[in-house]
């Protein structure tokens, strides 16, 4: 306990208190020190608690092991029909288009209603940046998760569109055409994503692997 004032720690802000006390600087330093130490301790204590919210090693191992590649047979899919498969926990709609539907996708009246008719925003691999927004015109494959807030749009005909088929999101009414392209002035900002895929043979689609754009994955798209 030294009696001399510590000149290197002047605290003019505490003068009103300091004038009453013989050792204002020493007291201020000790108070600040214990508050700082206590605060640092409390923050360190928070580390294990926040850490425990991290996903466990087991579940992260599980997510990497999750089947990334899935083969889907479309042999049973009649023209005009569609089906929903689950790939990596996401619903994927596969539609078998009739020639009328393919033709309808290029209808200028339809294109005029679309927000991104040319598929300029990267929501699909390059090989699907075409009029029918798919690898082969007769098959459309889209992840049916609305780009607005993540609801699952239903596959249904939309009255304002020509007979291309379409998707309608029940949450906020976003409408998409048969190629998953969002209409103008809808809550959803982007087209429905196209998963990486290629055709193993004429009747089998392999989801999760793109031959023409091998680096395309769901991480590459604008928004899921």
């Amino acid at each position: 306990m030294t009696q001399k004032h510590d000149a290197s720690f002047p605290h003019p802000s505490l003068d009103e208190e300091g004038s009453l006390l013989p050792h204002p600087t020493r007291r201020t330093v000790l108070t600040a020190g214990s508050v700082a130490l206590g605060g640092a301790g409390a923050c360190t204590l928070a580390v294990p608690f926040l850490d425990s919210l991290r996903r466990t090693q087991a579940s992260s191992a599980a997510s990497t092991r999750e089947q990334a590649v899935m083969d889907v047979s479309v042999q049973d899919l009649a023209p005009g029909a569609h089906k929903i498969v689950v790939w990596q926990g996401m619903p994927v709609a596969i539609q078998h288009r009739t020639p009328d539907m393919i033709h309808a996708l290029e209808d200028t009246a339809l294109l005029a209603q679309l927000a991104d008719p040319q598929s300029r925003i990267r929501q699909q691999p390059h090989e699907a940046e075409n009029a029918h927004r798919s690898l082969r015109p007769e098959y459309g494959v889209y992840i049916t998760i609305c780009t607005h807030l993540g609801c699952v749009p239903d596959y249904k005909d939309i009255a304002s569109l020509p007979a291309s088929g379409g998707f309608f999101c029940p949450c906020h009414g976003s409408q998409f055409d048969g190629a998953g392209r969002v209409l103008r002035n809808m809550p959803a900002p982007y087209n429905l994503p196209v998963p990486p895929l290629h055709f193993v043979d004429d009747h089998t689609i392999r989801l999760g692997e793109s031959l023409l754009s091998p680096h395309y994955s769901l991480n590459s798209i604008q928004q899921l």
Partner: peptide, 13 residues
């Protein structure tokens, strides 16, 4: 047992 063995920092908590 999972808290002790697998939850990160679970054993400390």
């Amino acid at each position: 047992e999972a808290i002790e063995r697998r939850v990160p920092s679970g054993w400390i908590i």
